[in-house]
């Protein structure tokens, strides 16, 4: 029997939903556990220390405390391949909205003794602190994507990274475009594929869960949303969602929030 690759799933600031995507693999998870050793995953109780050598480390959650930074550096130093899973780890998550707020002020208004809280002023993506080998976007990630990434890495091949827009998958599914027929503010034309065009398939506009797609034109798209009747501030908020700190979206947020100031 050859060496069984070691896998760890580490949690930082997050809701654990991406770890759940892992658990939700169902039977595939049992199959997977015959191929790899899962040495660390808080959600299921295995807790090898951060300095245990692993082949693949999956990281869920964003970096929000000085202690997080220490843990992350240790993990990076001991992992052959490091993969972020989900919006929090990959772009900072919904909690990155605090990056533009006065976190000290917030802390004082929430906690009786804020001096006990050790927190950074920002919620940062993993890539802001260490080198990331591969990113799996989504809120949450799809278990299918995680599993394909692991399978491909077991073959010794880098996973395929599709960065096309949600619209492409929406059209493959034969959905009618609700932006065109109902003026719905669907974010599909700027959002990266991966969810299988889940929301538009049920007649709901896309919410940017998978972050910015490759080659987005947020300026033109934001103008179009204004043309559909949205206020510039509403356009800014459409971009300032789960992946608000992804550069393409934070720039767009600034662009349209600024436009409101002008109007």
């Amino acid at each position: 029997m050859e060496h069984k690759p070691k896998i760890a799933i580490h949690k930082f600031a997050s809701c654990s939903g991406c770890q759940l995507a892992f658990v939700n693999m169902g039977e595939d998870l049992i199959e997977l556990l015959q191929l790899v050793d899962l040495v660390h995953m808080a959600e299921v109780g295995s807790m090898a220390p951060e300095d245990q050598q692993v082949d693949i480390a999956f990281i869920e959650g964003s970096i929000t405390t000085p202690h997080d930074v220490d843990r992350l550096l240790k993990i990076r130093a001991n992992s052959a391949c490091l993969i972020t899973i989900g919006a929090c780890a990959t772009s900072g998550g919904i909690q990155a909205l605090r990056n533009n707020a006065d976190s000290g002020e917030w802390m004082r208004s929430v906690y009786a003794k804020p001096e006990f809280i050790q927190s950074l002023s920002t919620s940062a993506a993993i890539a802001n602190h260490v080198k990331v080998d591969f990113e799996l976007w989504g809120c949450p990630v799809s278990s299918r994507q995680m599993f394909t990434a692991i399978r491909t890495l077991l073959y010794g091949v880098p996973p395929l990274s599709l960065r096309e827009k949600v619209c492409q998958e929406c059209k493959r599914r034969g959905n009618v475009c609700i932006l065109v027929t109902q003026d719905a503010p669907c974010m599909g034309p700027v959002t990266r594929t991966g969810c299988g065009a889940l929301c538009p398939s049920f007649g709901a506009p896309c919410y940017t869960c998978y972050g910015p797609a490759e080659g987005v034109n947020t300026a033109s798209f934001g103008q179009r949303l204004i043309g559909l009747g949205l206020h510039p501030d509403q356009v800014a908020r459409r971009f300032a969602s789960i992946n608000n700190a992804a550069p393409a979206f934070s720039e767009a947020t600034r662009l349209f929030a600024g436009e409101e100031g002008k109007s």
């Binding site: 827009k165 034309p189 987005v216």
Partner: peptide, 9 residues
Amino acid sequence: AEQCLACGN
């Protein structure tokens, strides 16, 4: 190109 979203619809 200023207008197009490269969405492929």
